[in-house]
Amino acid sequence: MGDNKNKLSRREFLTAAGIGAATCVASAAAISPLLKLTNKFSLEEFLQKNYRELTPEDKKRIFKRLEREISKKYGVKAKISDPPPLKGVKYAMVINVGRCIGCRKCVYACMKENNNSRSPQVQYIRVMRMEKGKIDLETAVHDYPESEAGQTDKYWYMPVQCHQCEDPPCVKVCPVSATWKEPDGIVVVDYNWCIGCRYCLAACPYYGRRFNWAEPQIPKNELNPDMAYLSNRPRYKGNAEKCTFCLQRTRNGRYTACVEACPTGARKFGNLLDAESEVRKIIDKERVFILKEELNTIPKMYYVFSKA
């Protein structure tokens, strides 16, 4: 009993098969643009582990592969290094807003040094043009024309970038630990581990994080071949990035690009743990303030109002 009732009739079978086949064909047609992607897939890249789980041999192999990929894409022989954090060092930066003229030389020097995408443009530093008599970000302007830089009689200028917090909200919220604080206090991102959820962008109180909304574009002749894995190597579409205090330079005893580029000497950089360092002397002697101190993320970016 019930056999006839439950068995599909010939017509029903054909209908079901027809619907199934049509759906498959239509789905294939719908996703056909994906054919463009197939040549880019690399199993080795797909299976790559988080930076902190890599052995020295893994790193060697991966860096070689990345160097190969970069030279193929940009025609430039790049060197990917992995400078370790220095012992007894915690980096900090002091910005003298009394001296900043808002010229944004730091913004572009940073972009060049760190191989940020030029199209769409990714900038780590945002210079806020503040109204006199206020520290109010809502009335500040960051996209003022170049002609309005240097008008220190009308405005004062405050550059903002990643504050390298001691208690970074971005690190806390990352679901896959693709970002962490290094022993020298620098917050870094493993660009090959980030899944692109952008929770870190939502969590950061300083607008310190950027996301690669499209495939990053850098002109071949502008590529900085001196790269580190955790900082300025070219990034990928779909992952987060940020200022790394130019660790490819600073861990080798050099200044960050923004410090070097500043024409007025408004930026100072050094070791917070060294009582003789320039930054410590300023913090000890001058009146410094911290942006949004009430959020208690303990930034290592200090601001000071000083004409000198």
Binding site: C194, G196, F211
Partner: peptide, 9 residues
């Protein structure tokens, strides 16, 4: 997600 291919992370 920006990188759905890395969802396994």
């Amino acid at each position: 997600l920006g990188r759905i291919d890395r969802m396994w992370h």
